[in-house]
């Protein structure tokens, strides 16, 4: 454990900025949190399937959609992980894109945990 490195890591979701962007609307925050918990897994599965098929075009599309949702949730680390899949996929570098998928899965899982906690009122 290295607490200094831990505190340097940006939060999974920048909740304060997100809430501010939503005009302080807690209900809307919960609505979009629930929405991502519903739709995010499907988008991630799309990324996995495209990676398994080696389909760079589908991979860039699914990673792009996921990136948009994560960026809107102010989940910056996860959005960057999605971009690291999307960019090489769009340039046809399927192998590089596929290699970046596990990191994206880890980050999306962290976002999901954070959103679940948020919905429980934590």
């Amino acid at each position: 454990m290295n607490p200094a490195a831990d505190s340097n890591r940006p939060p999974v979701i920048d909740r304060a900025t997100l809430l501010e962007e939503l005009g302080g609307d807690e209900d809307l925050l919960k609505e979009i949190a629930g929405l991502f918990l519903e739709t995010g897994p499907g988008q991630l599965q799309g990324v996995r399937d495209a990676a398994a098929a080696g389909d760079a075009l589908a991979l860039s599309r699914h990673a792009h959609t996921l990136k948009g949702a994560l960026a809107q949730l102010h989940a910056e680390t996860a959005a960057a992980a999605a971009r690291d899949v999307e960019e090489p996929a769009r340039q046809g570098q399927a192998a590089t894109a596929v290699a970046a998928v596990p990191k994206l899965e880890t980050e999306v899982a962290a976002v999901q945990r954070e959103l679940e906690a948020l919905l429980k009122g934590a």
Partner: peptide
Amino acid sequence: DEPVTRTT
């Protein structure tokens, strides 16, 4: 097409 952005 992305539901989080659209809903927001």
